[in-house]
Amino acid sequence: MRQTLAVFILATSIMSFAHGPESVLASENQVITFPVRDADFAAVQSCALDENPACRQCANHGSSNISLMNYSILHHALQKGGVTMPLRPVPSPNSERSRVMVADGSADIKSDWAFNIENNDAVLKTAPIILAGELEKGLYGHRGINDLSAGSAIKDAKDLRGVSIRNWRLDWQVMEDLTPKSLISAPTVKQMFALIDLRRADFTLLEFSSEPDMGREIDGIRLVPFAGVKVSLPESQHFMVSRKLPHADEIVDAVNRGIKILRDEGFIRRCLVNSGMINQRVEGWRTLNQTMPPFDKASLTVPSN
């Protein structure tokens, strides 16, 4: 009898350990807050309050609201991982302020590059939502000197003058790896476009757009990508989780389970493609930088909407 009772207690303990986080997280009377930059906040808040789940499915091709994409991925990752607490967006002026909010506990979770999360004792890092090398950018120059339909790709950037923003750590690293003829830092994106328009620089790195010419425009200055070439971003993105969030470790485990399911199902890939962060039109273009680790392209199948 005693042996039977001991076996029952041991089995119950194992089951509690295996399923405890899900039941604890499901019973918590709290919300999880997600900082969103002011420019995107209204759209993300509207979706968070919408009982129709369509806005959280990354189903609309050409949507460029990256904050809504990240909200949608986190929303589903929490649910798939067994967390039933609602996810609430909160306003933030910019990414740097959002990092501070998560670190001091005034917000709970945000997406960020790995290098902004590592060596920060105030936060935890989830599994990657974007793999190193998965995101790509184009070398964008003035449309007056760069014809996308010319059909002759440049070999490298060594004869070009680059411009970027030094605080964009990852872009700056990639620009340096390209060893351009010169590289200058602009204080703002507008200034960056203006320098190219004035022919004081030849190119910068930008995300490919869904426009027919894949161009991007600010204040009437339109830049288009040099045909046939691209760069990969050699860093992964994760969710940054505040250590001050109750049950933070268990929530990270739950999000990790959810991320794996979402990637296996193709949901994350669909979000990246439909948001424009991955442009399938440049799939065959040559990658100028080869510094990133390889990633599993077999996991990048795009499911139907």
Score class of each variant (00 low, 15 high):
Gln3Val: 14
Ala6Asp: 14
Ser16Ala: 15
Gly20Met: 05
Leu25Pro: 10
Leu25Thr: 10
Ala26Lys: 14
Glu28His: 12
Gln30Lys: 12
Phe34Asp: 05
Asp38Glu: 12
Asp38Ile: 07
Gln45Ser: 15
Leu49Lys: 14
Leu49Trp: 10
Asn52Cys: 09
Arg56Gln: 08
Asn60Leu: 12
Ser64Trp: 00
Ser64Arg: 01
Ile66Trp: 08
Ser67Ala: 02
Asn70Pro: 08
Leu78Ser: 06
Gln79Pro: 02
Gly81Asp: 01
Gly81Glu: 00
Val83Asn: 00
Pro86Glu: 05
Leu87Gly: 01
Arg97Ala: 11
Arg97Cys: 08
Ser98Trp: 09
Val102Cys: 04
Ala103Glu: 15
Ala103Arg: 13
Gly105Val: 05
Ala107Gly: 08
Ala107His: 04
Ala107Leu: 07
Ala107Ile: 04
Ala107Pro: 05
Asp112Tyr: 04
Trp113Pro: 08
Asn116Gln: 09
Asn116Lys: 10
Ile117Leu: 11
Ile117His: 09
Glu118Val: 15
Glu118Tyr: 15
Asn119Ala: 11
Leu124Ala: 10
Leu124Glu: 09
Leu131Arg: 11
Leu131Asn: 11
Gly133Phe: 01
Glu134Leu: 07
Leu139Ser: 08
Leu139Trp: 03
Tyr140Met: 02
Gly141Cys: 03
Ile145Arg: 15
Asp147His: 12
Leu148Phe: 12
Ala150Phe: 13
Ala153Leu: 04
Ile154Phe: 01
Asp156Glu: 09
Ala157Thr: 06
Ala157Gln: 06
Lys158Ile: 10
Leu160Thr: 07
Leu160Met: 13
Ser164Val: 08
Arg169Glu: 10
Gln173Leu: 11
Asp177Leu: 14
Leu178Gln: 07
Pro180Phe: 04
Lys181Asp: 12
Ser182Lys: 14
Leu183Ala: 06
Ile184Cys: 02
Ser185Gly: 04
Thr188Phe: 00
Thr188Ser: 05
Lys190Trp: 00
Met192Leu: 13
Met192Pro: 03
Phe193Ile: 00
Leu195Ser: 06
Asp197Ile: 01
Arg199His: 12
Arg199Tyr: 10
Arg200Pro: 04
Phe203Asn: 01
Phe203Trp: 07
Leu205Asn: 02
Leu206Thr: 03
Phe208Ile: 01
Ser209Leu: 06
Ser210Pro: 08
Ser210Thr: 12
Ser210Gln: 10
Asp213Gly: 03
Gly215Phe: 02
Leu223Tyr: 00
Leu223Pro: 00
Gly228Asp: 07
Val229Ala: 01
Val229Asp: 01
Ser232Tyr: 15
His238Trp: 07
Phe239Trp: 05
Met240Pro: 04
Val241Asn: 03
Arg243Gln: 15
Leu245Met: 11
His247Thr: 10
Ala248Tyr: 07
Ile251Arg: 10
Val255Phe: 06
Val255Leu: 08
Asn256Val: 12
Asn256Lys: 13
Asn256Ile: 13
Arg257Ala: 12
Gly258Lys: 02
Ile261Cys: 12
Arg263Leu: 08
Asp264Gln: 14
Cys271Asn: 01
Leu272Met: 09
Val273Cys: 08
Ser275Phe: 02
Ser275Val: 03
Ile278Phe: 00
Asn279Arg: 05
Val282Pro: 02
Gly284Met: 03
Gly284Glu: 05
Leu288Tyr: 01
Asn289Asp: 08
Gln290Arg: 11
Phe295Pro: 06
Ala298Pro: 03
Ser299Tyr: 01
Leu300His: 11
Pro303Tyr: 05
Asn305Trp: 05
